[in-house]
């Protein structure tokens, strides 16, 4: 078991199974197909992301360095939250980027009852340590515990 301390971007506690992207997470490329065509599991559709392509994202602890790609990214994440297909939490090794932050903030301000804890600045060691299938818990103080 390892603990990592990050910064709380969106508060909350959750325990979920990890899915890990070592490269930037392209939100539009990853989620657009799933949201458009009724895939409630939000299977990652990004052909350029070998870590995640074809894997379920909804309800998972999404571990990533940052998000990249189209600036529709934030609204795609907002839509995923509104449709209940968002990851259980988003855990960034780097400081959060503007697109992911926007999605998270828009969901927390404009949607009722959405909880998707977001922690950033967890460090490169976090992303080196965490592997697909590990159990990840987010604590109230921004500590992330990887089992």
């Amino acid at each position: 078991m390892m603990e990592f301390k990050g910064r709380i971007v969106a508060p909350g506690t959750v325990t979920a199974e990890a899915v890990v992207s070592h490269g930037g997470f392209n939100t539009l490329a990853s989620l657009q197909g799933a949201l458009q065509f009724g895939d409630k599991k939000a299977t990652c559709g990004d052909q350029n992301n070998p870590d995640l392509h074809g894997k379920v994202l909804a309800g998972k602890a999404l571990c990533l360095p940052m998000t990249i790609g189209s600036t529709t990214g934030g609204l795609v994440l907002y839509c995923a939250c509104a449709m209940g297909r968002q990851p259980a939490c988003m855990l960034f090794s780097n400081p959060i980027d503007s697109l992911a932050a926007a999605g998270s903030i828009l969901a927390s301000v404009w949607l009722e009852g959405i909880q998707m804890p977001v922690i950033d600045s967890l460090g490169e060691d976090f992303l080196s340590y965490v592997k697909d299938g590990m159990t990840v818990s987010v604590r109230e103080d921004g500590t992330v515990v990887v089992d």
């Binding site: 600036t71 529709t72 934030g74 980027d97 503007s98 926007a102 828009l106």
Partner: peptide, 20 residues
């Protein structure tokens, strides 16, 4: 458009998300 406006036109804009 953001990268063009910043780089070629010298305007100032963050890589904002849609809706933002």
């Amino acid at each position: 458009a953001v990268v063009y406006a910043n780089s070629v036109l010298g305007a100032r804009c963050n890589r904002n998300s849609g809706i933002m």
